[in-house]
């Protein structure tokens, strides 16, 4: 006789709803969840979905109408609480945990405990690099150093990513520069020139910022919730684009990075929490201009 798991034993097929497996001893019966219960759970889930979307839209409305910016953590706590309620509903009723063996729920709880440990301790480290000793506080280059990207250009032959050399710029800044140059060239072409002159560059830049803000003009709201003086784009704009906050219209001094004077948003308020040493080199514009953290 071969060792086969297909040597099956066929139970008596006469169906008895109180004993669906016809096994006789030790049987507990499987819970069949009623159709109205399932429907109610679905409606509750849809309600909570609408609620979470509604609260989020409400937050935008409050922000646009009354200029009240709600704190970031409020959004997370509300959205996650609603998600937890929804997940509990799905788990308890659709997945049947409420009527199932307790062991399956315990497995889920142990699993969630592991997830919590994972998030909690990782966040403790990355959120508190400088909280004990100031030695660890570093000023990273926002957007990354871009240095590794220069290496990709000549080294990676098996990588599928584009081989770009960003000239030690963060990639967002690099792409912006690319686009500005492109628009300047276009302006030059329109005027029958081969090399763009200052006039073309200015025209290209104006075109760039027009596109930049188009989406927000169309939607009639402001581009940023977390507005910080040190990268305020509104100084670039005609008056009617201006932010409510007139103080912010004061032009701020800008770094002259890689030839894109006046149009680099790629520095932001000072951040900590990055790997020490990795961001020190090549971050001259960051260390020069990084203002201390000043939320609102």
């Amino acid at each position: 006789m071969s060792h086969s798991i297909d040597d099956v034993h066929i139970p008596n097929p006469d169906f008895d709803p109180t004993d669906p497996h016809a096994t006789g001893q030790g049987h507990h019966g499987h819970h069949i969840i009623s159709a109205p219960t399932l429907m109610i759970v679905l409606l509750l889930l849809l309600f909570f979905t609408a609620l979470t979307v509604g609260l989020s839209r409400g937050e935008v409305w409050v922000q646009d109408t009354f200029d009240i910016i709600l704190p970031n953590w409020l959004n997370i706590i509300i959205a996650m609480s609603i998600s937890v309620i929804k997940a509990t509903l799905v788990g308890a009723y659709f997945m049947g945990l409420r009527f199932d063996k307790a062991l399956n729920s315990i497995i889920m709880l142990v699993c969630l405990a592991a997830v919590v440990c994972f998030l909690f301790f990782t966040a403790i480290d990355l959120g508190n690099r400088d909280s004990v000793s100031a030695v660890r506080a570093t000023v990273p280059t926002p957007g990354g150093t871009g240095e590794g990207l220069d290496k990709t250009a000549d080294r990676f032959s098996t990588a599928l990513s584009p081989r770009i050399s960003t000239n030690r710029m963060p990639i967002t800044e690099f792409r912006r520069t690319e686009r500005l140059n492109e628009l300047a060239l276009k302006q030059a072409e329109d005027h029958g020139r081969i090399e763009p002159n200052d006039e073309d560059k200015a025209a290209g830049e104006a075109e760039f910022w027009r596109i930049y803000y188009q989406g927000y003009v169309d939607k009639g709201k402001h581009p940023h919730r977390h507005e910080h003086d040190e990268h305020n784009y509104f100084t670039k704009l005609p008056d009617h684009f201006a932010h409510h906050d007139d103080d912010a219209l004061e032009p701020v001094s800008r770094p002259d990075v890689a030839g894109v004077a006046d149009s680099s948003p790629n520095f932001s308020f000072r951040r900590t929490g990055k790997t020490p040493g990795l961001f020190s080199e090549g971050s001259e514009h960051a260390s020069d201009h990084a203002a201390p953290a000043s939320d609102h």
Binding site: G144, A159, I171
Partner: peptide
Amino acid sequence: RLFKVGIFDPALGGDPVL
């Protein structure tokens, strides 16, 4: 390694210690 998505790469703002 394949796409350079940047999660562990300081060149793109990621963190190798992560």
